[in-house]
Design a protein around this nucleic acid. Structure first.
Length: 258
DNA sequence: ATGGTAGCCTTGCTA
């Protein structure tokens, strides 16, 4: 069972890239973030033509998450439990044949010193609570998405330049580590130990061409999923295309019948 | 030199 995550930065603009990637890679579940698209406007017919179903929550211009899957979603959850007052479309969760998958668009939190940063930390606190509840079920869980967290300095092309950034703050990293200490596993680091591997390259300043990026998109696995993970990688090819998203997909393969 | 680019509800906001 192949599970992937991709911040597409507008599903409408990225639709050609999205369709060609789905057709080529054939993920069983693809988690999207920053669709920037209300659910009623989501281009679901094009994905259905490839044999996929879509569950999504969205809003105009900002945020928006989706689950694109071959199997129908079960036990759908829209919005992060514990944050009923959150109006931003950042969390959608469902089960697919006994594997629970969430598509997460964690708040960016910049600039630190504004109310955006405490919003990020409060959101992460609720995500920790949700993860704790899900881990009690003792089933395979994949929490996938744009976490807007660089777990360590090795995940940043220029750690000094990002020292005061919300993506690298001690408080942000501490909440991310709280997820790991609960028993979740960073799937990418099971297979790749080398530093300076990225999922995001800023549009500004030719960062893609110099491979100056950040590792902020993550697949976190519950023990039952980590026991079955057979592969995980970042697919850099979509980032090289014209009119690319600033993020590229990350995927993992679980030894579970889809 | 606090720049640069992209997408959106655009003349500003978010990332």
């Amino acid at each position: 069972m192949k599970i992937a995550s991709w911040n597409v930065n507008s599903v409408k603009v990225r639709l050609p890239h999205l369709l060609s990637w789905v057709e080529e890679v054939q993920p069983d579940v693809l988690c999207l973030q920053e669709t920037k698209c209300p659910a009623a406007d989501f281009p679901r017919l094009e994905l259905e033509a490839l044999g996929y179903r879509v569950e999504t929550i969205g809003q105009r211009a900002y945020n928006g998450v989706a689950l694109v899957s071959k199997r129908p979603a079960e036990e759908l959850v829209c919005g992060l439990p514990g944050m009923p007052e959150d109006e931003q479309a950042r969390y959608i969760e469902a089960s697919f044949g006994g594997v629970l998958v969430a598509s997460i668009y964690l708040p960016n939190g910049n600039p630190v010193g504004t109310d955006k940063f405490p919003y990020k930390l409060a959101w992460m606190e609720q995500l920790v609570h949700r993860a704790r509840d899900l881990l009690r079920r003792e089933i395979p869980v994949v929490l996938a998405g744009d976490y807007n967290i660089c777990p360590a300095d090795e995940d940043v092309y220029d750690p000094a330049a990002f020292r005061d950034d919300a993506l690298c703050q001690l408080a942000s990293r501490s909440r991310f580590r709280a997820l790991l200490y609960l028993g979740l596993t960073d799937a990418y680091r099971v297979f790749h130990r080398e530093p300076h591997r990225y999922t995001f390259w800023d549009y500004k300043g030719g960062h893609w061409n110099r491979d100056e990026g950040l590792r902020i998109d993550h697949l976190l696995l519950s023990p039952h999923a980590a026991d079955r993970v057979a592969a995980c990688d970042i697919d850099k090819k979509p980032r090289a295309k014209d009119r690319a998203s600033d993020h590229t997909p990350i995927w993992c393969e679980l030894a579970v019948q889809p």
